[in-house]
Design a protein around this nucleic acid. Structure first.
Lengths: 224, 224
DNA sequence: TCGATGCTTCGACCGTGATCGAAACATTGC
DNA sequence: GCAATGTTTCGATCACGGTCGAAGCATCGA
């Protein structure tokens, strides 16, 4: 009975259906208000409020008060990564192996993971960035190379390396089961994809759908 | 309230302290009997038995009956990866940021993750295997290259690619936060490290401690 | 065949935590 | 100020699930 980190505490936070629905909704990356999350979870407002304070106390959510609205969001990419890992297991052991609808397929190709891109496209992108030496695998981190910094700057993506948030971070992809790029750079790239209208967010889903021209542009810039 | 995979079900399985302790114990990779796990979790045998059937029903554990002993083990590397991800979050949000004892430090360097090696050494190894083109990042998988197959065969590690189990698989490392190598090859490498006595398992811990000569040998073979 | 060992099932107990209505609190717009 | 809106706190209810002792199965060794 040696004691490690309190994984039961964290897991039990995710282990309630109402809270799991809230976290799932927040995987889209946008912060939501308490009432939106209550609707999403299918519980009353008081119940939702209670759950939300547990999640924030537990360190899984952050809270940003703006006037009378209170926006809840995931506490970081690591939390998002954990939830993706749980989703992966749930998919694998779930009773419904054979339910790959069209929306499911789109999710596997490209989706939002908190604030960055995930799915086959994202994994392929990270691979190419390594191949082109724009990113370097350091001892225990991913780093932006000088040529990489120049490359992204030319695209209008400039990252302040001194900010608190790490520039590059690996995040395990539940569908592909390999890492994709998170961190400030990962978020900036997703921002650009949306801003350039290369792709749009599917309504009420984490799926990201590229337009034909958008896909070409994305491949030219990131998969070349 | 759109429905995804049942992540609450999976998370709540991990969310009970007794079950979490059991899973943690099984992260060492060796299957354990019900009585051993009861001891590990600090509960009575009937209680443990009840938990264990829930975990197996839930798909997190596999059961191998051998005579009157019943050995429980993790259901796969994906489950192990999920638990590592939860451990990572628990460490990050836990109240004890500054408690890196010596055992903790050893865990970060090298430890067992289910049946393969994890920690800084394991992440560095995977990086070098890519650099040396012994492994290839394919579209959505890690593959063994022809030269890699030859290389490992020369070390006495031969993997049957037609077996049900994937040869190579990525597994996210909770301490380093990047991928290390799982799958049949990852397991075989750990086997070799132990068999060659390059390192030994720390008692009652997942830590793997290299001997001075063993470290040299490991670095020569896998980090060169 | 018989006791010993390992494990599960049964039954009963009990505490934690999820739930919601009502009321209190906070902020904004008028 | 004062109503309207968004959110939390309080209080009470209730059910689910964790817990263990006792008994029941199964397997092994002699």
């Amino acid at each position: 009975m040696r004691e490690g980190p309190d994984i039961a505490r964290i897991a039990s936070l995710v282990g309630d259906p109402a809270r799991a629905n809230m976290l799932n909704a927040l995987m889209g990356g946008t912060a939501l208000t308490a009432s939106e999350l209550a609707l999403e979870a299918g519980v009353s407002l008081p119940t939702a409020s209670s759950h939300l304070s547990k999640l924030t106390d537990g360190g899984l959510l952050t809270l940003a008060s703006q006037g009378r609205h209170r926006y809840y969001g995931l506490a970081g990419a690591q939390v998002a990564g954990m939830i993706e890992a749980i989703i992966g297991v749930a998919e694998a052991v779930g009773p419904k192996r054979v339910r790959h609808g069209p929306r499911d397929a789109a999710m596997r190709v490209a989706r939002v993971c908190y604030d960055h891109l995930a799915g086959e496209q994202a994994v392929a992108m990270l691979d190419r960035l390594f191949d082109r030496k724009l990113l370097l695998r350091d001892d225990s981190q991913i780093r932006l190379s000088p040529s990489g910094a120049a490359h992204f700057a030319a695209l209008g993506i400039e990252i302040d390396a001194r900010a608190r948030r790490p520039v590059c971070r690996a995040c395990l992809d539940w569908s592909v089961r390999r890492s994709h790029l998170a961190g400030a750079l990962g978020a900036a790239i997703l921002d650009k994809i949306i801003a350039e209208k290369w792709a749009r967010r599917e309504k009420d889903s984490r799926a990201v759908v590229f337009s034909p021209k958008g896909r070409q542009a994305f491949e030219r810039v990131f998969l070349a």
